[in-house]
Structures are given as C-alpha cells and as structure tokens.
Design a protein around this nucleic acid. Structure first.
Length: 422
DNA sequence: TCTGGGGTCCTAGGACCC
DNA sequence: TCTGGGGTCCTAGGACCC
C-alpha cells in the first residue's frame, strides 16, 4: 500500500525565534502579525496560558507581564529562510516532497514501499531537528488527510516522539473515534457547526454519515474529505505546485491616514512587491487591482471600500508598468477626506511569461524593461529587499510598528550571532 | 490607543449565444 | 392565453487552507 507523509513544523515561527535564543526554551513565546497587531504563532507554553490564535495583542498585556511571555514582531525573512532549510533537509531524506506551506510538506515514499515507516518517520524528525533546530511532527498514513491527523497526534502525545505511522484499520478507527471533527483537514468552522447540529462530534462520526448526505450538504470537497478518512486517497501528490493565479500584497497600516502621498508610496511599494513575486514565478499578468479600506473596527465613521480593476493591454511583469497602473488606480478611487486603514494591490489574469503573445510594436521597450528588472532583482537579492526601489515608493521604510523584531540571523551579515569563547 | 496576510476551489445565478 | 432550451462564460459569494 502506498503511504503519504506529512512533516509539520511545531509552532513554526515561535520555534524559529527559539533556535537563535535557547534561553526561550520552556518560556512562553508568541509572534505577532504586521504592526504587532495580533498573535500569529504560539509556543506550547503560550497555548497553555490560553492565548488564542489571532488574539489582539493589546488584550494580552496583563498575561504577558504575569507569565513573562517572550513577544516577537514577525520576522518573515528569517522564517522563510528557516523554511527553505527544513525543506532542503526533507528533500535529501525522501524521494519527493510537496511543499504545502511555509511550515508543512507532504512526503512521497514511492520506491521505499518496503520501508519500516515508523523508524523512517522518527529518523526524519530527528534529522530535521539536528540540522535546523526546528522540532517537527511526522505523520504517515494511507491518505493525506489521515497523515495530517497522524501528525497532529504527535503534538498531542509527546510519547510518540515526533512521528506516527498510522495504517492498521483498527488503529485508524480508534484514533478517529477520539479525534474532533473540527480538527480534520477540510472541515472549517462553518461545517464544524453544521455537523455539530447533526450530532457529529468526532472524525469517526463523520465517516459514518451516508456518502450521499455528505455529497449533498458539503459538495465534492466535503465528499473528498469523507473518502480520505475511509482510506481512499483522493488528494494526489503534487511535487511541482502550479503557478499562483493571483498575487497580492495588502497591508493594514499602523494608523488611519488621509494622506494621498503616503497612500501613493504604499501602493507603489505593494505593486513593486507583487511584480517581484510575479517575476519570481516566471509569469506575466493581465490585470492590476487596487483597493482602499477604512478601519473595520470603527463604528463611529462610515465604512468605505474603494476598488478598481485595471486591465493591461499587453500582459506585463515590469515593476515600472505595474506600478504606473496601480498608481493610476489609486488616483481613480482615492477620496479626499476619508481616513484609510488598509490598502492592497492584486495581480490577476496570470499567464506563463514564455507563452504569451507580445505586442510586436513595443518589443524594444519590453527588452529594455526585462534587462532593467533582471538587474533590479539581482541587486535586491544580493543586497537585501528594497535596496533598489522606484521613485514612487520614496526613500526609507513605510511606517510600521515592529517594536520586538529579532535580528535577521540567517539573511544578513549584520544579523549573525556573535559567539564569544570564555 | 491597539484588532494579519495570502492563497485555493466550488457553486449558483445571470448574461449571452445559437 | 402564452411566455424554448441548452451550453458556456463570468462573477460574486461561500467554504476552506496555513
């Protein structure tokens, strides 16, 4: 029988911070979102304190003082780099991997069909930990959905020691009977509530529902999950995930602003970030959208959502072209006297760069843009993000609260740890 | 005072065409 | 007293993921 593996990094962002400061071991750690707004990662100790995912930081000040919680502003370049290291180790240990998110990868064992999967899982977990410092949970099972459950068991039961091979039908049945249906991959809050109303509490209860009922109430997606729980693999392994169909850069600001100049710099910066992501996957886009939003938590003022989609006559990937369109969009939707709290740029109608039909008449311009962008991308890769920017972005960083940022330990020479021998 | 960001797929309904 | 029907494309909204 073929098996799927899942490697999930435990409390990933919090664990990344811990790698570079071992004094955090045993201490509650939380990582905050952009502008230090809310909690996006928690160590086990922080979870035990009742700190919730997404909880606003300002509600936690008392807990943080009382329990001596270590708090960090999100350091995404660091987490991205640590992720690449983890994925690199995995790639050396199994025939193929599918990077599913920054902290998860599915593992394909084709060709290792007679392996001792229990021992293999433990070896992978130990090796990743030793080579990167990141603790992981490995689940191995007949389907992806079951592998997810197996990996969650590792977190629940430390005795499993980081790996769980779940394959005997009687074991699977026992596990599902104690596994809350809301924690199953593919069952979100809505369906969780709907199922609870039907008296469905565990994954096993769900698997016992009639197939047709699931198909009718939860569509093909819900049915897929149901089949996967029955051990029928419906979600295949994809070693090379498809290109993104939408690329977005959106931010909530540190405060409300009416200042057109600031919005202009922000939109230009977001457009440049989107364009760089677009080129990184080797695509061009056919449309640029821009939106502005007011603070959704303010009851005392009318809400505004301004947005516009601007098609491009010829698909493009140049920061200069996309920025010009995004700024044009901003001019169209901006309303004087409205204080905005959030804005974003979204690229859509994405095509492979190699496949699209260019415009014969501006081939020269295009070649020039291509050379310029290649140079800009190379410089920013070598010397750090935003070293070369468009004039529209302005100089210096955009306003942002990040009071508790750790150092760029692995992505900048200045950030390297200094070790003193005594 | 303070409340994240970036994605995917599915489905229903309307527009449009023959 | 009658108001076709089926296919396709697009969009908005709803569900999910990390």
């Amino acid at each position: 029988m073929p098996f799927y593996g899942l490697c999930d990094c435990n409390n990933f962002y919090a664990s990344c911070e811990r790698v570079f400061d071992p004094s955090l071991e045993g201490r509650p750690v939380v990582v905050l979102s952009n502008n230090d707004g809310c909690v996006i990662a928690r160590s086990n100790e922080a979870k035990s304190l009742g700190i919730a995912m997404g909880q606003p930081f300002f509600q936690l000040r008392e807990t943080i003082r009382r329990a001596d919680v270590a708090v960090f502003s999100a350091n995404f370049p660091l987490y991205g780099d640590m992720s690449r290291r983890v994925m690199g180790v995995l790639r050396r240990l199994v025939p193929a991997t599918e990077v599913y998110s920054i902290d998860e990868a599915f593992l394909d064992f084709t060709g290792m069909d007679d392996a001792d999967f229990d021992a293999l899982g433990h070896r992978i977990a130990r090796t990743v930990r030793r080579h990167t410092g990141i603790p992981v949970s490995i689940g191995i099972a007949p389907t992806k959905t079951l592998a997810k459950i197996a990996s969650k068991l590792c977190k629940r039961y430390p005795k499993l020691d980081g790996a769980c091979f779940m394959h005997r039908p009687e074991d699977i049945r026992k596990v599902l009977g104690r596994f809350p249906v809301n924690d199953v991959w593919g069952v979100g809050p809505r369906w969780g509530r709907m199922l609870a109303e039907q008296g469905v509490r565990t994954a096993w209860d769900f698997a016992q529902l009639p197939r047709e009922w699931v198909r009718r109430r939860m569509g093909v997606t819900g049915l897929r999950t149901w089949c996967e729980l029955h051990g029928e693999a419906c979600i295949g392994f994809e070693e090379h995930p498809a290109d993104r169909k939408r690329i977005a850069t959106t931010r909530t600001f540190d405060r409300d602003t009416e200042d057109f100049g600031e919005l202009h710099r922000r939109i230009a910066r977001y457009a440049a970030l989107c364009a760089a992501k677009l080129r990184a996957q080797g695509s061009v886009c056919g449309a640029v959208s821009v939106f502005l939003l007011t603070n959704r938590f303010r009851e005392d003022r009318p809400r505004h959502y301004e947005h516009v989609v601007l098609p491009l006559s010829v698909p493009a990937d140049s920061t200069l072209e996309l920025t010009a369109r995004a700024v044009e969009g901003l001019r169209r939707i901006y309303r004087r006297g409205v204080a905005y709290k959030r804005a974003g740029v979204i690229l859509s109608d994405i095509l492979p760069r190699s496949g699209f039909q260019g415009d014969l008449f501006d081939a020269t311009d295009r070649a020039k843009h291509d050379r310029l962008m290649a140079a800009v991308d190379a410089l920013n890769a070598a010397y750090g993000r935003h070293r070369v920017v468009t004039a529209a972005e302005g100089c210096g960083p955009l306003p942002q609260h990040r009071d508790r940022l750790s150092r760029p330990f692995t992505t900048d020479w200045e950030g390297l740890l200094r070790v003193k021998a005594t």
